[in-house]
Simulated assay, not measured.
Amino acid sequence: MPPQRAGIQSVEVGFSLLQVLSTSPGPLMLRDLAAAAGMSAAKAHRYLVSFQRLGLVAQDSGTTRYDLGPAALKLGLAALSRLDSVKLARQLMPALMAQTGQTLALAVWGNQGPTLVHWEESPQAVTVNLRLGDVMPLLSSATGLCFTAFSHPRLTAGAKSPGRLALLVKDELARNQKLARKDVPASMAELTALLDEVRLRGMARAVNTLLPGVAGFCAPVFDADGHLALGMVALGSLATFDPEWDGTVARPLAAAARQLSSDLGFKQG
């Protein structure tokens, strides 16, 4: 444990008021704000006067309710502008690998589709022939299905003005039809049903469709605006990989993705 350093207790106590406001669905009356922060109304009022002077808190003159002020907004936006989602995700990888024992990767949306930008291979895992910079197929990989299911609605195949994702999906569907593949979607109806399941499960899974004998999961990570920031991937040989939705790989992967989304400012609806 790092050594305890001396601080200013009153700052820490007063910060509890800001924490309550940050998690409240709307402005609060003084008595409710104080009660939620675990202090008397008189004590809370003294802190709120100072916070108002600093712009961290604002009070509506009509309702007398308190809410976060413009200075709090500036601090939040500054923090979000400095966030590096991939850097934060990489910090979670060692613990996640210890839990799953599987190879892990991170993917972001690139010019040609979901692209692997970080790779950590488990020493116990069977080597998978993938490399950094590889673009994952949209319909036969867990990564591709994750990005297809959770990307911004305007990018979906049914949009009036198809974006890059919709065009890539259309091309891949056509290839699957030409190859007469039965293990991946070959029609929009099949794809829609599969994407509905991905959204219902909260993550994507692929078994034997990307590579023979290989399974994988991809869990979405969302930013503060609710947009897909990256995908957290776990994959490995079916000899050691647990492909169950509630198994030893899926559960910790989903938990890590939820934690990272929260760190990026995403609030679960």
Rank of each mutant, 00 (worst) to 15 (best):
S50L: 13
L77Y: 06
S50Y: 07
V57R: 02
L48C: 07
D84H: 08
L75S: 08
L104Y: 05
L75M: 11
R65Q: 15
N111H: 10
W109H: 05
A58S: 12
P114R: 01
A105S: 13
A107Y: 06
R65E: 15
L68A: 10
V49Q: 09
A107R: 02
A78E: 14
R90K: 14
T100W: 05
T63R: 06
A98G: 09
L83I: 12
L80S: 12
G110N: 08
T115H: 07
L54H: 14
A95C: 00
L106Y: 05
G76F: 03
N111F: 11
Q91N: 13
S81T: 06
L92V: 03
Q99K: 11
L83P: 00
A107F: 03
A71E: 15
S61F: 04
V117E: 01
Q91K: 10
G101N: 01
A79V: 12
K87R: 14
K74E: 15
Y66V: 01
V49D: 04
A79H: 13
S61Q: 14
V49R: 11
P70S: 13
P70L: 05
S61A: 15
L88M: 09
K87F: 14
S61R: 12
M97I: 01
V108G: 10
L80K: 11
G110D: 11
A95P: 00
L75Q: 10
R90I: 02
A79T: 11
S81P: 01
D60Y: 07
Q112S: 13
A89W: 00
G62Y: 04
H118C: 07
T64A: 11
G69V: 06
L96P: 05
T64P: 06
A58L: 04
W109R: 07
K74V: 10
T64F: 09
S81I: 06
A95T: 02
A89L: 02
R82Q: 15
V49L: 12
L96V: 02
L75V: 06
L77G: 09
L48P: 00
P114Y: 02
L54Q: 14
A78V: 04
W109A: 04
L56N: 05
N111E: 15
A78T: 09
Q91V: 07
W109T: 07
Q52L: 05
P70Q: 05
L73A: 14
V117G: 07
Q52S: 11
R53Y: 10
V108R: 13
A78H: 11
A105E: 04
V86S: 03
Q59H: 02
G101T: 04
T64E: 13
A105Q: 06
A71F: 06
R65D: 14
